[in-house]
Computed example of a mutant assay.
Amino acid sequence: MSLKVLVVDDSSFFRRRVSDIINAAPRLEVIDVAVNGKEAVEKALALKPDVITMDIEMPVMDGISAVREIMSAQPTPILMFSSLTHEGAKATLDALEAGALDFLPKKFEDIARNKDEAVNLLQQRVQQIASRRALMRRTAVRRPVTPTAARVSTTRATESVSPTGRPATAAPASRFRSSGKSYQLTAIGTSTGGPVALQKILTKLPANYPHPILLIQHMPATFTAAFAARLNSLCQITVKEAADGDLLQPGVAYLAPGGMQMLLEGRPGSAKIRILDGGERMNYKPCVDVTFGSAAKIYQDKVLSMVLTGMGADGREGARMLKSAGSTVWAQDEESCVVYGMPQAVAKAGISSEDLPLDRIAERILVELKRQ
């Protein structure tokens, strides 16, 4: 059975281009198109597609407003198309916060080395996020939360809802326990679904977080500055796009710049960041493996690391290096991931010591650091 796709864009050329690419995939079928956000909402409710591709800037109703209405009435996996500009980055982040699962640049040549690679990437992304449709629909109807229901039980597991609308079965509600290890660095790697996941975790950390945080998010070069600024405005800790020569400071999160690689040099307590060219042969820029491996060499067993939602297996080898050095590696659990690729690679390799639901990762971090 083919996966049904609704294509939304005010450009007839782009609608046709995206439709041709999607229809060329054996398991995908464009069932209709919409020329603005209002029409997209109407057709989403009537046709119940498996996936929607959505432009941001459209007449009558913009894509962000359409995402909000669709996610409220008929939760559906949505892939946004965005311009690679600062304003485009801000709008895309708004769309992700509204409920869209992923995004791609409107200029396919910005994300691929050739036409075939761009075609495969779009088809793969559509199929990947389509797998989340059933779980999103399953949680569409929410029961009202009473004061009694809101209280955490101490005898049974609790169920929460992730930013994607998926049910996230939490660990037993009894409190976590610290391993007793000491740390000097936190490192987090993620990709698809990462912007929302990072926001959910980082906004719960206190301003006096005891050591530096490295963030490696697969993201275009023009997006990372806007993303760091958004996180900084929402968090108690400081969040900045990492710059070459930055000295690592406690309570500061450093986001790897898109299109580049972030490494560390020096010694614990006086380490600094080096930002290097992404490299033509590297699949990911920034790459989680590169940063994790660099952290393992300098900080050895003093790193608290985690791999969050994302497609592929980036982070597995870097996490392996961290574990070999004695550091701690956690992975986000399958139920709360937008795409269970990167965390699955770490978990299947036996590298992660704990697999955690997104809504409890911040709590687990603070307990591990004895902050609660």
Results as ranks from 00 to 15, higher is better:
P167F: 00
D102K: 08
G245K: 06
D355H: 10
K115T: 06
K285R: 12
P105A: 10
P343G: 04
K48P: 00
G180S: 07
E109P: 04
G193A: 03
V152Q: 14
S162Q: 10
R143A: 14
I216R: 00
V33T: 15
L205H: 02
D333G: 00
I237D: 11
E265T: 14
S270I: 11
L255F: 13
L369A: 09
K115M: 09
A242Q: 05
M80F: 09
M262E: 02
A118D: 05
L214T: 06
G312V: 05
T203H: 09
S131L: 13
K323N: 04
G88D: 00
G37T: 01
P250C: 09
T164D: 14
Q127N: 03
G189D: 12
Q74H: 12
R113V: 08
D10Q: 03
S160H: 15
G315A: 04
F292W: 05
I365N: 08
V196F: 12
L248T: 07
V196P: 07
L47C: 01
V152K: 14
Q332R: 04
S352N: 09
M321S: 11
A24F: 03
P147N: 08
A100G: 06
K90V: 11
W330I: 11
P59I: 04
A173C: 12
G245P: 00
Y209M: 05
A173M: 13
T328I: 14
G293P: 07
S83N: 10
A44T: 10
E39K: 03
P49Y: 10
S174F: 08
W330K: 10
S174M: 07
P210M: 00
I52T: 07
V35I: 15
S72P: 05
A95C: 02
R27V: 11
L263I: 15
E87F: 12
M311E: 09
A171T: 14
I56Y: 09
A25S: 02
V7F: 13
V141R: 13
L214C: 05
A170S: 14
A296K: 04
V41Y: 07
F223C: 00
L248V: 09
F14P: 01
S65Q: 04
A112D: 01
V33D: 12
P172Q: 07
L101E: 06
F81I: 01
A98K: 09
G259P: 01
R125D: 02
G165S: 07
A171E: 14
E97H: 08
S131E: 13
R27A: 13
S324I: 06
E334H: 03
V303P: 00
T139V: 15
L234D: 08
Q300F: 11
S182H: 08
Y209V: 07
E368R: 03
G194V: 01
T85W: 05
R274S: 15
D55C: 02
E57F: 14
I21N: 00
V329R: 01
S162D: 14
S160W: 14
A228W: 05
R132A: 10
D110P: 01
G37F: 02
V141L: 14
I22T: 05
S305T: 08
I361A: 07
K90N: 11
Q344V: 06
L308H: 03
Y284W: 10
L214P: 09
V51P: 06
Q128F: 11
K204W: 10
A295D: 08
I213E: 04
V5A: 11
A118H: 05
K107G: 13
D246V: 11
T186A: 09
K323Y: 01
I365R: 02
R27P: 10
A118T: 07
D32P: 08
I237M: 03
F103P: 03
